[in-house]
Design a protein around this nucleic acid. Sequence first.
DNA 1: TGTCGCTTTGTTATCGATAACATTCCCTAA
DNA 2: TTAGGGAATGTTATCGATAACAAAGCGACA
Lengths: 339, 339
Amino acid sequence: MSSRGKVITLQEVAVRAGVSRMTVSKVLRGAGNISAETRQRVKQAADELGYLPNNLAGSLSSRKSRMVAVIIPSISDIVFSEVLSGINSTLRPRGFQTFIGESHFEPETETELIRAMLSFRPAGILLNGGMARSADAEKLLARRSCPAIQLWDCDRRALDFSAGPSHEESGRLVANHFLERRLRRIAYVGAELDRDLCARRRHLALKSSLAGDGIDLLSVTCENRPRQAATGRFLTEQLVRTHPEIEAIHFLNDAMALGGLSYLHEAGLPVPERFSVVGFNGTSLANAVRTRLTTIDVPRTEIGEKAAQALLRMTEEEDVPEFWQAPLALVQGNTTVAA
Amino acid sequence: MSSRGKVITLQEVAVRAGVSRMTVSKVLRGAGNISAETRQRVKQAADELGYLPNNLAGSLSSRKSRMVAVIIPSISDIVFSEVLSGINSTLRPRGFQTFIGESHFEPETETELIRAMLSFRPAGILLNGGMARSADAEKLLARRSCPAIQLWDCDRRALDFSAGPSHEESGRLVANHFLERRLRRIAYVGAELDRDLCARRRHLALKSSLAGDGIDLLSVTCENRPRQAATGRFLTEQLVRTHPEIEAIHFLNDAMALGGLSYLHEAGLPVPERFSVVGFNGTSLANAVRTRLTTIDVPRTEIGEKAAQALLRMTEEEDVPEFWQAPLALVQGNTTVAA
DNA sequence: TGTCGCTTTGTTATCGATAACATTCCCTAA
DNA sequence: TTAGGGAATGTTATCGATAACAAAGCGACA
């Protein structure tokens, strides 16, 4: 099963082309001065034999690999997979391979992933910010021999470069949006805030911005349910039951907001007349059939691209700023009244 | 930037523990007979030095790597990223690293990805089925020295194992759903059918099932727009304008269906009374605020898991069946009338 | 004619591990 | 006493490339 075709090495190409291994290596990498005639002969030999370079050997020998490690909380959460996509589409054309890890916001899992990934001696490692980092993880990162980049968080900068939004800015944007509309009975609905420090920071920024206007934010969260529509729906129901006076809700993300909206709709509570709702992310979800969710748009793909670009520059020993702050935009939908 | 901590090798651990490299290697891999006392000494030395194995060297030497290549059409399409997530969460606990490529349904891109990924000498390669494969890609795959698995397609089996749904079955399920409801003026709305052979097969199965009942399927597709909500909306508008008699639509996926629904809603065409709509995938999208899309549910995560499990078994030289057919379920929502 | 200097190609050591086999040690049983 | 045998550890070759330097070939010019 696992051994079909014979694997061809440089040596065999060299023999066929009548040159040394080194010459073949140079030709195939486009390095050194090789005559056109030799080059052509080598290429043909490699072609005829179906030679495929062994990247493991090459990387070991040259002590530089073209693999980049990425650790995100969830692969199937569109929010992170779009960042990943931005990373990959920037790195691929430059010959770098992306490999991935899923942390689920768990520090221990992240630590193990960092260990596993660093042992591939990658050209760089990109980690999602906004989660607690174990002491072991810090130790591993301190001993790394490649650039490291933080994704998704630009408030608390770390590692060699940070690319992401300011979550505090997001919280403030939402606060202002509510305040401009003279909404004063405001709630926040979220989940997993114990692990997701970015979401927590958005929450805190909202809370303190509102506090500045004498408003006390009501928070409804739970730690043991996923950050998905069903949870948003469940918590909204709780919220409305226990605090019928609430008139505006900010959700941890768009998915939870949609879940909340579906409850409000079924409970006959009109949006935006009775309830204002604001999400976070600006995912395609936000434009549901009859609902355009008011939300904070985050340029996720671009975050990945900027991070990857910074990595490429560091790889080439070029100077790189310390961070890239992703611009945020509050997108007015029909779940809050127009200004 | 790229050289901070000194990198520790087996040799240095060996010196510190007062044993040979080989002994250290054995201890750390848990191989061979090593006395408890030596084991403990070696482990402590490795720990104190912060030793991190070099996977490149290890894989090169043992001629077996723990990397698995995955090529999917799109990383940020939830449909494929959930498959990827299933793969990764099965492989990770077994010590395998997943690395990814994005083909965008382009055969040339896929070919280059296969080439790049095989040169890492992976333990296996998982490719999305349902797209044309270039001759070069076939050649590369023929010469591979690892198991190869096809994802997302079980009709046309290929490689060592196929895990996915039968797209023909899906087409038939949708046809029956429409027929049972006595709908006869039926349309299909899709995009990129030139590249996505799975979608094409669903379409053809629908068409021929309907033809069996003397119904002529109307197809509205375009090749140069993405398979997203906006395209679904656009094509639905076209469809309704040019063929006002249509009473049921099957969409390529849930996202396009939602786009179509938003147009139908704004045009004042009631669903399901005037229009029946069926999507494909069973994504979380399907449950929008007031709409529960009738759709075909595909167990995406499980497809990834089964594929990864098969790969693991092949790696251990165990026998594996030729395929795993993912069960499909038509989920009744409120965009078609109940049976 | 000899040598300088360039282009082109080859030699050798090395990267950091593992496989396969060799060796040492110690205990037991004849 | 000694051979036999298993447990524990070490030696050597190798994996497939690249780096760094060495050498060969060749023309030009003094």
